[in-house]
Write a protein that binds this DNA or RNA. Structure first.
Lengths: 153, 153
DNA sequence: CCGGTTTAGTTGAACGCTCAACTACTGGCG
DNA sequence: CGCCAGTAGTTGAGCGTTCAACTAAACCGG
């Protein structure tokens, strides 16, 4: 308290607002496209992706929550919904009676396979096509630094 | 159709996932802090900011929607809520009978003034403190390019 | 000045996320 | 062993966003 606020200078202000516009705009565009073309929000797409990459297409709920950067509550609701569309099913965990294992069904895998090309094309169009290779490299370093910084604090 | 999907190579994959983690993590953290400390989501904070910078603290709904990058519907709902907390009020537009003008009240300005220092500190901690000056510059260029690219397509 | 097209803004339902409270199980320590 | 703090996951209420449908007014060509 009583400590002077370190306000943003005009350059920082400009950077921050550009970042907001870009990241929100990008996510909104991809979310809209995915919803329109595949009937799922981007968050659900990410869940399916992570499951598809896991051994046996199975992951513990907590692990899946960590991988997708979502709260346990959010994941619970999401998996409930994915289960009711038949894309994921929940199983008892053999080693921990509290645990649940999410399993990507064949139907779910097919839905993902159908959604992927359009979505990847969208990521390319909206992100990679707009940047130079050197900017892509800069963006990777910046993002990794930020993500790392966020988890450490 | 029939055109091969240009999948992401491992480097692009890594960049994309880092960007997702960073931007989502950043927005989630700021949103959580703002909600906890000031009782408003980040989207509402942005609305108040834009209004506070406008002449007479007044803006047409559409202009406000454009400035905050939100849909008209979203803004309508948001302003309705802000009005019921007494932070914004709606007035008839003198030059266009279809129009509405949103006006930031003194109470709303005070709420913004109370929220701002903590929020700015958060932006600093989570974003600017983690990056070198040159990275901040890179991020500005990248973001402006992306934002520009999004509106043009 | 009339009729059709745009533009401004609102509305309600469906949906996803957050938060806090809750159940059930585990793991460690006395 | 028995207790108890911590962990896994779920649940329901409340909120914000989206989408599509809607009203009303402005604009524009004939």
């Amino acid at each position: 308290m009583g400590v002077m606020t370190r306000w943003l200078d005009p350059d920082e202000q400009r950077t921050w607002r550009a970042f907001l516009a870009a990241s929100r705009g990008l996510m909104d565009a991809l979310d809209r496209e995915l919803q329109r073309d595949a009937g799922m929000p981007h968050a659900y797409y990410e869940i399916l992706v992570r499951l598809s990459e896991a051994p046996e297409r199975r992951l513990r709920m907590s692990e899946l929550a960590d991988l997708t950067g979502s709260s346990r509550s959010r994941l619970s609701h999401a998996v409930a919904r994915l289960e009711s569309s038949g894309w994921v099913e929940r199983e008892e965990c053999p080693t921990d009676r509290r645990g649940q294992v999410a399993h990507l069904t064949d139907t779910g895998f097919a839905a993902l396979a159908a959604a992927a090309p359009g979505h990847v094309e969208g990521v390319r169009r909206h992100l990679f096509d707009a940047l130079t290779p050197s900017q892509v490299d800069q963006l990777r370093r910046i993002s990794e630094t930020l993500a790392d910084h966020l988890t450490r604090s």
